[in-house]
Design a protein around this nucleic acid. Structure first.
Length: 929
RNA sequence: GGACCCUUAGCUCAGUUGGUUAGAGCAUUUCCUUGACAUGGAAGAGGUCACUGGUUCGAGUCCAGUAGGGUCCA
């Protein structure tokens, strides 16, 4: 048996065991027929991403879940992988190209550019998966997937083709192409979905403008006064688009303007043209002066107004956010924000700018590029979501449970207001849409009927048989239109052979999805719809859902509650933390501060405490090893066989009771996703119940040959069960100790080869050895602990806290003394005294009142009566207050008549104890003279 | 504007269905390197549980409102 070193060196241990696990294929997900399964798909990080604290929390949780499942004997499978992350990766490579070669993607051409992206991916990708290994993640690496792999790509294209040929719940084609207003990112040069747009309050100006009436009018008020009416007043934040105005709209019921409807105003910028005044319900008469400039090309509401009134569309912006010739000669070619300034200057010069006031409003930003998006009219592919109603129902019915439950509401609310999904992206890195257009047709003018005409449009995986007559769509699919297939595409779908090989039928639906709530719409909701639609056609709904539980972990924030970000530099590098505190320390510390569904305020001290706990565990095991040779630890049965039921004392009973309680807490932690509670109980059990008390108490027993084997067997038992409970959270140190203390059975070298006992299993195993746990032992041990604390307190107060040769004298009734003397040996040791003997009468010595009567401390020095009197008086005062409170409670008739008996008894008992204590303290005071 | 969450010790957080004197880690005070562990041990100090009202014999816990902080959706 190798000797355990003085302190725990995490890094050596971690590297060794991870290699061993991989070598032994410990993480392989195989399901035997009929075996209960537990499967998780990883939220695939961006292929070029690096590990941050959010990943650490998310993946530690998944690893804990999957490791626990293994210990419970389930066929566990955790599928890893990465996401091609269309925009993010393409942008990254483009930047790199620009910097190193001074070229853009168009200089290289599509084919060459994609080659470069693949090279980049091969060189720099998957780094994050290696980092997850450092953390101890037990993914089945042989199942690593990438959303652009051939098999996965086939799944993506298959899903598109299937959707193209199917209808939504209202019988409409799921996929259509249409020229509609989209969120356009002028930096990435692509359309975005609504979810990729982030509203941010943005400071700017509200420009108050005059639009001259072509035929000035007059207003006649109630008194018959007539005033000239020469212009309309409008407000806009975007004067640079004025040249694209095609009308001014007012509310049809707005009496201020009804007489003007049908008349015209001069457009104040660009070519001097007249535009009509129209009436539309969409105008808010209360906003500004109640008139709205209508610019159909650059605003969604305006576009809809334009449609209703058959207005032309003038697009004054280029794709990259610069103005084009329709913006007028002064603005053409300018960048949009410069043009805004310039437009204001021009308006001011022409006298049409009344004022520009500072204004803050919500502006949509491209989440990825961080620039304001432009509403832009373009041809895109759209998806009408399938299975929307079913997706709501599975959550309402609890087939899919969200934790914390409140996220269900957010989810349902989104589905209630669901909008069609713009799935095409004007990118190259991604899955190219499997649509071919017949040569010679005008793509801009395809009707819904044309889309379904196989002579004009070809949609398939393989492409047309006569490719020379067709041109493939340039656009690729939104990244999320590939990752929404993740739970089943990683299990081989749609290839039957691959599915069989991957144990699709056993691992789907997966058990738990652990992710952040920030992607509940992007990913979670869409996966549910995709799963219902594709995974097991025709199967009952409970077999089609992609997962049964969704656990939303919090966001890791810094101490001030800010999100961790590169720019703020407030995000510690997880690998540094692993270096400093060990992977186990990081995992354990982080989980301790991660209560269900709350954001985590990161505190490095907590991680340090995780490391310290590792060391504590290490040393407790080291001490066990030093106390006696290891006997057969290879199974629970073997250890139990070494227990002597007749030797079990109160401490054994109390410890085993606490162990059972810990087992229950941890079990509940896993079913309810209450990991913080589980880790905290593990901590307090091991440190307080086991080390602080039991190991100390057992020091005496271990010296006694008659009970030594038994006492060590209890320790071996508790350490074994603890390691099993702790392994999911701290796999490295537990593995090392499992091995060092001989818990591994022959041919079963790893912790995961063992089966964790449930609390009921352990009770049954104890019963089978003739052991019934004594429910009252814990209370008696608690009393002894109190006695020890009080005795130590007395020593500290008398400035002999560290001396071990002091003498105590206890004055109490026969019953108290007999209880005390039964535990005398260990108490003497624990309080640090030469002896504790019985006093015959009150003594003129410093004293403290304990549950076993009054305890006097003989330091050999004359007692300081004045100091004692002060101390005892204070004590008497405190006790008196508690007595008064309890008496008042008991004197209340409504309390005594309504409170349950147990509470009443407790109060009465407490009062009696307090009164006895008061009397004793009073006697002591009196004896001081 | 709608929905949700949070407010407990100096800091970060626990506190299960209402029930003795509200807990932990870190920080802090005093003492201790005694044979597991100084990454440690012992003893202590530190809290009107944001505020107001209600329900109840009893509220950190349940209800309503107020204030402050945060998130999501419009």
């Amino acid at each position: 048996m190798p000797e355990i070193t003085k302190s725990y060196e995490a890094r050596d241990v971690e590297a060794k065991w991870y290699a061993a696990w991989q070598e032994a294929k410990c993480f392989a997900g195989h399901a035997a027929p009929g075996q209960e399964t537990y499967s998780i798909v990883i939220p695939p990080p961006n292929v070029t991403g690096i590990l941050h604290m959010g990943h650490v929390l998310n993946n530690t949780l998944q690893d804990a879940l999957i490791r626990r499942a293994r210990l419970e004997g389930k066929a566990a499978c955790w599928i890893p992988g990465t996401d091609h992350a269309g925009i993010a990766t393409q942008t990254m490579v483009e930047k790199h190209l620009k910097k190193n070669e001074g070229k853009g993607r168009r200089d290289l051409g599509r084919e060459e550019f994609l080659k470069r992206v693949w090279t980049w991916r091969d060189e720099k990708g998957d780094h994050i998966l290696k980092q997850l290994r450092e953390l101890g993640c037990s993914c089945d690496w042989d199942r690593t997937h990438f959303t652009m792999d051939p098999g996965y790509s086939k799944a993506v294209l298959t899903s598109f083709v299937k959707l193209f040929n199917s209808t939504d719940e209202q019988g409409r084609a799921c996929i259509y192409r249409g020229k509609r207003m989209v969120n356009w990112c002028p930096t990435s040069l692509t359309a975005l979905s609504d979810e990729e747009v982030e509203m941010r309050p943005t400071k700017g100006f509200m420009y108050r403008l005059r639009y001259e009436l072509v035929e000035p009018s007059t207003i006649t008020d109630a008194e018959g006064n007539v005033t000239p009416f020469t212009h309309l007043i409008l407000e806009t934040t975007r004067p640079e688009t004025i040249a694209a105005d095609v009308a001014v709209a007012v509310h049809p019921d707005d009496v201020r303007y009804t007489h003007l409807v049908g008349k015209k105003v001069w457009r104040p910028l660009g070519e001097r043209v007249q535009i009509p005044i129209i009436a539309d319900e969409a105008v808010d008469p209360a906003f500004a002066a109640g008139a709205l400039k209508v610019t159909p090309a650059h605003d969604k509401v305006d576009f809809e107004i334009g449609q209703r009134h058959q207005l032309p569309v003038i697009d004054a912006l280029n794709a990259d956010g610069t103005m084009n010739e329709f913006a007028g000669p002064e603005l053409a070619g300018m960048e949009r924000f410069a043009a805004r300034k310039k437009a204001a200057e021009l308006l001011e010069a022409s006298g049409n700018l009344i004022e520009a006031k500072a204004y803050e409003n919500n502006v949509g930003y491209s989440q990825r590029a961080g620039v304001p998006i432009e509403p832009r009219l373009t041809q895109q592919w759209w998806l009408r979501y399938p299975r929307v109603e079913e997706a709501k129902q599975v959550v309402r019915d609890g087939l899919i449970q969200m934790h914390p439950e409140r996220w269900s509401k957010v989810y349902l609310n989104w589905l209630d207001n669901i909008q069609d999904w713009c799935i095409s992206r004007q990118l190259w890195w991604g899955h190219r849409i499997p649509v071919w257009y017949a040569k010679g047709i005008d793509r801009e003018k395809l009707t819904e009927a044309d889309l379904r005409d196989p002579n004009k449009i070809h949609v398939s995986l393989e492409g047309p048989a006569d490719p020379e007559n067709w041109i493939q769509e340039d656009d690729v699919l939104d990244t999320w239109a590939s990752s929404w297939l993740w739970p089943f595409a990683t299990l081989g779908w749609p290839d039957a052979e691959a599915q069989a090989k991957a144990n699709f039928s056993q691992f789907y639906p997966t058990t738990t999805l652990a992710t952040g709530a920030d992607i509940i719409f992007f990913w979670v909701a869409r996966m549910i719809m995709a799963g219902l639609e594709f995974a097991k056609p025709g199967a009952p709904v409970e077999e089609r859902i992609p997962f049964k539980h969704v656990y939303f972990n919090g966001i890791v924030r810094d101490k001030q509650g800010r999100k961790m970000s590169k720019t703020l530099g407030n995000s510690p590098d997880p690998l540094d933390l692993i270096q400093k505190y060990g992977a186990d320390g990081l995992r354990f510390g982080l989980l301790q501060m991660a209560p269900l569904g709350q954001d985590v305020k990161f505190d490095e001290d907590r991680i340090e405490s995780g490391k310290n706990f590792s060391n504590k565990l290490w040393n407790a095991c080291r001490f066990r090893q030093m106390n006696g040779a290891m006997s057969d630890n290879s199974s629970l049965g073997a250890i139990l066989a070494r227990l002597d039921a007749s030797q079990l004392d109160d401490d054994d009973h109390a410890l085993l009771t606490a162990l059972l309680d810990t087992m229950k807490t941890v079990e509940r932690g896993f079913t309810d996703f209450e990991f913080a509670g589980a880790t905290q109980r593990l901590y307090s059990f091991f440190w307080n119940d086991f080390c602080d008390w039991y190991v100390e108490v057992a020091k005496a027993r271990v010296q006694d040959p008659a009970v030594k084997d038994h006492a060590l067997a209890v320790q071996d038992l508790v350490i074994r069960q603890f390691l099993l409970l702790f392994e999911p959270f701290a796999p490295f140190i537990t593995e090392e100790l499992w091995s060092l203390l001989g818990y591994a059975a022959p041919g079963k070298p790893f912790v995961q080869d063992a089966r964790i006992e449930s609390p009921a299993d352990l009770i049954a195993a104890l019963n089978a050895r003739g052991i019934q746990l004594d429910a009252h032992a814990s209370g008696r041990v608690e009393t002894l602990k109190q006695f020890v604390t009080l005795a130590r307190q007395l020593k500290t107060e008398q400035n002999v806290g560290q001396k071990r040769d002091v003498k105590f004298l206890a004055l109490g009734a026969d019953a108290a003394w007999s209880a005390l003397s039964a535990a005398l040996a260990k108490l003497t040791r624990l309080v640090g005294a030469a002896e504790i003997s019985r006093a015959a009468a009150e003594l003129a010595l410093p004293a403290i009142v304990t549950p076993f009567g009054t305890l006097f401390l003989d330091t050999g020095v004359k007692v300081d009566a004045v100091a004692e009197r002060v101390r005892l008086t204070k004590e008497l005062d405190t006790v008196g207050k508690h007595i008064a409170g309890t008496e008042a409670r008991l004197a209340n008739v409504t309390f005594t008549s309504k409170a349950p008996a147990a509470v009443l008894d407790g109060a009465r008992k407490q009062l009696a104890e307090l009164q006895a204590k008061r009397d004793e303290v009073a006697r002591l005071l009196a004896s001081l003279g």
